[in-house]
Design a binder for these strands. Structure first.
Lengths: 117, 117
DNA sequence: GCATCATGTAGGCAGTTGCTTACGTAAGGA
DNA sequence: TCCTTACGTAAGCAACTGCCTACATGATGC
């Protein structure tokens, strides 16, 4: 992944790691400190901190100082772009295949299809 | 990204690249050969072939021999897992924030909240 | 101010990505 | 059969990831 890519790429990249997805699922149950997020993983604290950095860059979480701790919280709207892209394209693909079905139906019924393939 | 990760990670990883997403959008308009997919990009043919390999590993496309050409086509169900994950989690995050709103409302009205933070 | 706790940052290392050029391979035509 | 076409694979390189072990920073408490 080249550096400084577009927002959508950053979101998908952040989601493309089981550890980071597990962190998001943990945060879905409520905000947590970095220490709390480190516990479930056999991983050093700096490694967790870097994963959190990826999630933060993608706009999926926020880190705010809370006294001596740093509270990590979900940013629900962070998934908006990803959900929109996936939903739109899955719908488009599906409708394309529906049209292909129609085309095939026309072919088998002897009519002329309006699309290639 | 370590090698041989889980299916969901492979899908999100495949989507985390503008070139690969553009290829999917091109394929949404209809199947295409590798040559046709190479044209829009300032990139060598082997590079495109490798991107297609990533998309194929993720289950997002299929490559089939068609005479001398190789036809690339979308696998619409390839996005199912991604859409499910995103939709489920976005819904969960949103409902969590709705509950937080309730908690805050209870706090401001003097009642005892049932959740931390 | 100084020690301590929670966390971020820097540097290093193995493994991966993304691209290139060069070469291999399968199908079609003279 | 041999050449061409369309594509994949191999090898190599710069850049990035993901992890680690130090070390730095910022807030709390004595």
């Amino acid at each position: 992944m080249p550096i400084a890519t577009d927002p959508l790429s950053r979101i998908f990249f952040a989601l493309a790691d089981p550890t980071r997805r597990a962190m998001l699922e943990r945060l879905a149950a409520g905000s947590a400190t970095v220490g709390e997020l480190t516990e479930p993983f056999a991983m050093s604290r700096p490694a967790v901190s870097q994963h959190l950095g990826v999630l933060e860059d993608a706009g999926l979480i926020e880190r705010t100082r809370q006294g001596r701790w740093r509270s990590c919280a979900l940013r629900p709207e962070g998934l908006d772009d990803a959900e929109r892209w996936v939903a739109e394209h899955r719908a488009a693909w599906q409708s394309r295949f529906d049209r292909l079905d129609e085309t095939l139906a026309q072919l088998t019924s002897g009519q002329t299809p309006t699309e290639e393939e």
